[in-house]
Simulated scan of single mutants.
Amino acid sequence: MSKFTINRILTYFFRGLLFVVPFALTVYVIFQSLDWVDGLIPIDIPGLGLVVILSAVTLLGYLASFFITRPFFEFFERYFIKIPLVNIIYTSLKDLIGAFVGDQKKFNRPVLVKVDESGILLKVGFITNDSLEKLGMEGYISVYMPHSYAWSGNQFLVKQEYITPLKMSSTAAMKFVVSGGVSGLEDLK
């Protein structure tokens, strides 16, 4: 075989790999997650546990929305968070989930943060708190900066003059940061 043929075969292989691996891993992660949730309720019919859990969560959300039943949920929560260690875990998880799906989404205001005085180095982040006056830090705001290719990030307290709002949706900004700048810009119009 000639070198040209081998190079062409390798190019096709890597192009196929670029399609197959992300697709297969996405399907695998979704399948494993759904299988794990389905297995939380031991029912022999595949998928029924998932349906039961989704229905129960939806029903609880529905009941928690009513004026009559809301005080019951608030009463339960008030005493639940008084348990040591439970308070830290519960409130942290509730705040994190609420930041993405709650009524007061927190990662909806993308900004650029000057990392150095010259403004040569910039980082994309999301405003999570407009005022830190309660901490005695007037003129500072809280900015969350996610890491690329990870489910983690850092929270920084930044002077307001180092912040510039980004003209892009929070979804596009998060996609841009998490992908390491590879994607997210195609969503801009």
Rank of each mutant, 00 (worst) to 15 (best):
I45N: 02
F13V: 15
R8Y: 15
I81T: 01
S2Y: 13
F80K: 08
F76I: 15
S33F: 09
T5A: 15
D38R: 01
R109F: 04
P84T: 09
P42W: 00
K167C: 00
S92V: 12
M1K: 11
R78K: 11
T69Q: 00
L166F: 08
D103V: 04
F72C: 11
Y149M: 09
I6F: 14
V20D: 13
G98C: 06
P165D: 01
S169K: 13
D44M: 10
G16Y: 09
V115A: 13
G119Q: 01
K134C: 10
V37L: 06
Y28A: 02
L25I: 06
K167L: 10
F13Y: 14
P71M: 03
E138V: 13
D130T: 01
L48W: 12
F100V: 12
V57W: 04
V52E: 03
K3D: 15
L93I: 00
L135H: 00
I97W: 07
G184F: 09
I127K: 02
L25T: 06
L60N: 11
D116L: 10
I89N: 00
K175H: 10
T26H: 00
L54Y: 10
F67C: 10
I97P: 05
T26C: 03
S131E: 09
V101I: 10
A150C: 05
W36E: 00
G102H: 04
F100L: 12
K189P: 07
I9D: 10
S142I: 01
V86A: 00
D95W: 14
L112R: 12
K82T: 15
I97D: 02
